[in-house]
């Protein structure tokens, strides 16, 4: 599965993941607390400098993450021109652009495993209520592992249905796909047990 991470050795790559995420959160809070054009422009410049100069990322790596929202941002600016004024619109749009770019920098310079470690660290306080942070890594790995499996089963069901004359009936695809996946989940649960993933005490017999 293709991740948006771009390997590198720059100071931004080497900075701790927790620090980068904290920076992102601080930026988000700050930009909304102080909605002024000079602050927003400075933030935008700082983010671009961090990504392109300090982090030596290709511009394409950042653009890849701006592309999905750029039309929305343009529409938003148009809306502000009509309803409020150009300055408010510029602040609103550039603020979002700066945030999206900053997030793109973090994503492109931080390994998935490091981010998982931060998520696990963030979840640690929840251990007292029974959450097991170490499970996050396993769940993420399992999701990535089973995306191609599910996609393949969907393709196979579609072929089987096409062979029997069905065309593009997507609901008819979903029911068998879900049932197959649920059966797969049942066996997968057993396989996890068989390979020692359950360190919880054994279930008691429900009926003696």
């Amino acid at each position: 599965m293709l991740s948006l991470y771009r390997p590198g050795t720059s100071p931004v790559h080497r900075a701790r993941a927790g620090l980068k995420l904290a920076g992102l959160a601080a930026l988000g809070t700050g930009l909304f607390a102080v909605p002024r054009i000079e602050v927003v422009l400075a933030a935008l410049a700082a983010v671009l400098a961090t990504g392109l100069l300090l982090g030596r990322l290709p511009a394409g790596a950042l653009w890849a993450q701006v592309r999905p929202v750029w039309l929305l941002l343009a529409g938003l600016f148009g809306f502000h021109l009509l309803v409020t004024d150009a300055l408010t619109g510029t602040v609103a749009v550039l603020r979002l652009l700066a945030l999206v770019l900053a997030a793109a920098v973090v994503t492109a310079t931080t390994r998935v495993t490091e981010l998982v470690a931060v998520v696990e660290w963030l979840l640690r306080p929840l251990e007292v209520v029974g959450v097991r942070p170490a499970r996050v890594g396993l769940l993420v790995a399992m999701t990535l592992r089973f995306i191609p499996v599910v996609a393949e089963r969907a393709a196979r069901i579609r072929e089987a249905q096409a062979a029997r004359g069905a065309s593009g009936v997507r609901l008819g695809l979903l029911v068998p796909l879900l049932v197959q996946v649920l059966q797969l989940a049942h066996t997968l649960g057993e396989a996890l047990d068989a390979r020692g993933a359950d360190d919880v005490p054994v279930r008691r017999p429900r009926r003696a």
Binding site: L4, Y5, V69, L76, A103, A104, L139
Partner: peptide, 28 residues
């Protein structure tokens, strides 16, 4: 939650083809 976590970790799985932390601070 797991799906969104995997997206946030940088895997572009949203229908729009987007992924990474950017979508979590975008307008939608």
């Amino acid at each position: 939650l797991l799906f969104l976590t995997v997206v946030a970790l940088g895997v572009p799985l949203l229908a729009s083809g987007a992924g990474g932390l950017g979508v979590f601070v975008g307008p939608t």
